[in-house]
């Protein structure tokens, strides 16, 4: 059940707030109206706007999966005025949720394929629903390789789930950081070099990457070197946006809008965009 006015958020309640890193929190949100909540469906890759009433709203990729029927999770890094205000909320607070918006990862098309998830920093957050879905329907998919990178060990998001992921069948978890600390015994390397080192095979595979523009740029170079075709490389873009509907005219890249033509694009699609992102 959609409201008449797509700029009106659904009143929602912050159920739980979990610290993921020093500046990233996971927000578990539940829509207040039971009818709307029942009909609120979304797919991996889609995003919602979350309002801190009195400050404003910003778009965030959804990190939960709809089939768990447990509301909407978003991982929010504190970087601006809206995210600052959201970070100061306590469980029980009323927020606004608008969406879901955008296209999604076509997971049905990935069935039977090997999937490589390559995420950097908070850019890993919108990739988590792919992992959850693959692990929930494990037999439908091939191998799963997860590369999660961050500036430092404490900046790696979703640490409580690492053990579950690593222990899953046909699944490999590779963690890497730009700079370690005294407790870190893992990898210290930039994500693109991990991609290169793992020699990911493009055979029957799909690589999905998200992170800072510079990381995506060099990851792309490595994937191409490994023989990945542009239609095997998928990313999700970020753009400044105010509506999610293609109306505020901010997030366009050439004649495509990140909010409604994206945020999920294949490199093949990106290379055909008029404007460079």
């Amino acid at each position: 059940m959609k409201p008449e006015n797509p700029l009106l958020p659904y009143l929602s309640t912050l159920q739980e707030l979990i610290d993921l890193t020093p500046d990233v929190k996971l927000f578990r949100l539940e829509l207040n109206d039971p009818d709307i909540r029942e009909g609120f469906d979304y797919k991996p890759g889609q995003f919602v706007f979350v309002s801190a009433f009195g400050v404003g709203e910003s778009p965030f990729g959804i990190t939960s999966v709809a089939h768990h029927k447990a509301g909407v999770d978003v991982a929010i890094r504190r970087v601006g005025t809206v995210t600052n205000a959201l970070h100061q909320l306590e469980p029980g607070a009323t927020v606004g949720v608008r969406g879901p918006f955008g296209n999604y990862f076509p997971l049905d098309e990935y069935k039977g394929k090997n999937i490589f998830i390559i995420g950097g920093g908070i850019g890993f957050a919108p990739l988590r629903p792919i992992i959850t879905t693959v692990l929930d329907y494990r037999e439908d998919y091939g191998d799963l390789v997860i590369i999660n990178g961050a500036r430092s060990p404490q900046d790696l998001v979703f640490a409580p789930e690492f053990d579950t992921w690593a222990a899953s069948p046909k699944t490999k978890l590779e963690l890497t950081v730009d700079a370690g600390n005294e407790n870190w015994t893992g990898r210290v390397a930039l994500i693109p070099s991990v991609v290169s080192e793992l020699k990911l095979s493009p055979q029957n595979a799909i690589a999905i990457t998200c992170g800072p523009p510079i990381m995506i740029h060099f990851t792309l170079i490595e994937l191409r070197k490994l023989g990945f075709a542009d239609n095997q490389i998928i990313t999700t873009l970020e753009g400044k946006m105010k509506c999610g509907l293609g109306k505020c005219a901010r997030c366009n890249v050439g004649d495509k809008y990140v909010c409604k033509d994206g945020p999920v694009f294949s490199m093949e699609q990106i290379s055909q965009l008029i404007e460079q992102f």
Binding site: V79, K240, R250, E275, Q276, F277
Partner: peptide, 12 residues
């Protein structure tokens, strides 16, 4: 700053 996102990246 019309297209500058929180964190600083500005595609335009």
């Amino acid at each position: 700053g019309f297209t500058r996102i929180a964190g600083g990246h500005d595609p335009r």
